[in-house]
Amino acid sequence: MSFIECRNLAYQYQGAKRFAIDHIDLDIEQGEFIAVIGHNGSGKSTLAKLLNGLFLPTQGSVCVDSIPTADEDRRLDLLQKVGMIFQNPDNQIVASIVEEDVAFGPENLGVPPEEIRKRVDEALQTVGMYDYRLKAPHNLSGGQKQRVAIAGIIAMQPQCIVMDESTAMLDPIGRREVMQSVKMLNRTLGITIIYITHFMNEAVKADRVILLDHGIVAADGTPKEVFADYQRIIDFGLDVPQSYELMHRLGCDETVLTEDECVTKLEELLKENGNT
């Protein structure tokens, strides 16, 4: 059994004509790093909210670690297993001091004070915000606030973190900081990451990319597989990573997704051209 199982999952907003999520099947294993992409209104955020039970399925089911999200009695278990980071860092910080905000989750779970102290310190060290533990959140930068929010989730010791466009409001530096923290959590702690984004440069850093279109899964696979067909991505109304765009314009057919690959490929091309 997979860690997260969506079976025939459908969700319809009240008064909406069509399904925002249209009967999809999806399996997510423990420890995966998944990017979810799709244009506006493709159902990305709806899917995120279905995964931890903020929205309940209209039809079908979602099970996390064998807990159905619709199970009212195990709601706290579910919320503890699946942490969620939102878009606006200001609207998810509850306390007026960094460490007290990180402690909010464990406090709600009824963790004993000494254990909370330990978890808060560890979580802040993990995201590199330990030196800021006594600062007021409103004095931090966007990237730092978002890292505090991540620490607040890690302190609950979740198995999975859903990032709902958490980098959309950040500057490039903030985006990089958040991406690094999240990657590290995935590699070292084995936390499953579901990373919803519309920045393709971020999506290609994941192990698996899920492309949503009008509530259905249009593509699902490694970044190389999903981005293989250049024209198809453009047709979905999405951007392609800059390196891919550059290589495509240069007439290269290969799927070149990251900057490093792009550099090696360019070197090769230049050498070839120099020889002829």
């Binding site: 931890n52 903020l54 706290l76 919320l79 503890q80 942490g83 969620m84 939102f86 609207n91 998810q92 509850v94 460490e99 007290e100 402690a103 909010f104 989750g105 464990p106 406090e107 709600n108 779970l109 009824g110 963790v111 004993p112 004070p113 909370i116 102290r117 808060v120 607040g152 989730i153 609950m156």
Partner: peptide, 18 residues
Amino acid sequence: NAMECRCYNGGEGRTKLK
């Protein structure tokens, strides 16, 4: 929403850092 996602459930059974 964010508070709910962090398991906030009112004052019942809540502990404190300090």
